[in-house]
Design a protein around this nucleic acid. Structure first.
Lengths: 220, 220
DNA sequence: TATTACAAAATGTGATCACAAAAAATAAAC
DNA sequence: GTTTATTTTTTGTGATCACATTTTGTAATA
């Protein structure tokens, strides 16, 4: 049923594969906010037994990506104003800090990767490719964050992205790509120049402006 | 096996009871860092089948309270310097903010509760009762945070406490209660006076000083 | 057409079994 | 006594079944 699920690798456990597959689907915006999810439905779609799905879904619920509604039914989380405000606050407190923390660990090879991601991203922006933009924007941010080697805050950031991604996908489809202006170039220059404050500010501004575009689309 | 587990309530599901029981045991410091955990062992101790334990443990792993070591063995998370630094940073960014956010929602009845909690806490400090201190310190903090009605940041704070609680219990047993000085009185006065900044600062100072006592005891 | 009553299917939860891999325990050899 | 080899037990994982509850589908009634 799901079109773009990563291929099964026999060396990786089924539960982990299911979890990362669901993560990717959520982050890519394949899950529409509010839509109902069933364990057996996902199990059939991924062609696995319900058991590893239960484990993955339990995790995603605890990370806020999925919601347990009345009568223990599972659904994709819906955005509201207070959730959005807190996600924005937490992102602004955690992501610039981790970016800055990763600064000294980013080598030349990584910089080249980030540069290529950003070039691809600009291409998607020009052609109005929302899916491409969302995916490569995430690759850019997490490309930086992953270098930080952060044991506590990185999982928290991951959880935050899982929470707003379904909402972002819907909204981005409405506002389109032409109003988006990111601070990736500033971030890249800051990385190259090893300027902590400039990188911190670039990520901060990127989040502020990006989330600002989404704010108007919240319905309670 | 576990002595102080909350009583089973037939109206609440087994998985939720197991999860909250394990949470309480962890927060109260009953789980020693590094100790191995087995699904069947916990299931036998709580006199339930392994199934709901699997669910609870999966959640606790994703919240950072438990760790998956090599060969998929489960153990209580061990503290190290980088984890500690990030937990401290995240607590300082999130907890004062949520406390401040809860300020206008705390009514007279809640203030009375907090005051009684703090009185009991002082008693435990005088008599050197570590377990009592840890429990009532948590009751005080979460008594405030819960009033904030926070959908995103509150769960993050909960996860942070689950991560450092096992470590704190061990260290607190070493340093003792006589060196502890909290800012709960300042926090209470700030709440009564509806002073946002004073409450923010009180919680900030409380975390800084409390965690400062723990910092020296980290072994890598 | 709209509403109600009933039957059928679906859903999360809990329990149990099977299995491969890893620990732990025991026996054998030097 | 110490090390090596072998057996036994334990452990997480995945699959399957049973069950109460809820939802959905269908037919009957007005």
């Amino acid at each position: 049923m799901f079109s773009k699920v990563p291929q099964r690798n026999p060396s990786v456990r089924v539960n982990q594969w299911v979890y990362s597959s669901l993560c990717q689907l959520i982050l890519d915006g394949e899950f529409v906010p509010g839509v109902s999810i069933t364990l057996r439905g996902i199990a059939d779609s991924l062609e696995v037994s319900p058991m590893p799905v239960r484990e993955a879904v339990t995790r995603l619920i605890s990370e806020g990506a999925l919601d347990v509604s009345e009568h223990n039914r599972i659904s994709v989380s819906v955005m509201n104003q207070s959730k959005f405000d807190e996600i924005l606050y937490a992102r602004l407190q955690l992501e610039p800090k981790i970016a800055s923390q990763s600064l000294k660990l980013i080598d030349r090879k990584k910089i080249k990767q980030l540069d290529e991601i950003d070039k691809q991203l600009d291409l998607y922006l020009e052609t109005g490719n929302i899916e491409g933009y969302i995916k490569y924007n995430r690759l850019f941010h997490f490309g930086i964050y992953q270098s930080a080697n952060s044991p506590v805050i990185f999982p928290m950031i991951n959880s935050l992205w899982l929470q707003f991604s379904p909402f972002m996908r819907v909204v981005a489809g409405i506002v389109g790509t032409n109003t988006i202006h990111d601070y990736h170039k500033a971030a890249l220059n800051a990385i190259i120049g090893q300027n902590h404050k400039a990188l911190y500010d670039a990520i901060h501004n990127d989040i502020s402006e990006g989330m600002g575009l989404l704010n108007d689309s919240i319905v309670n």
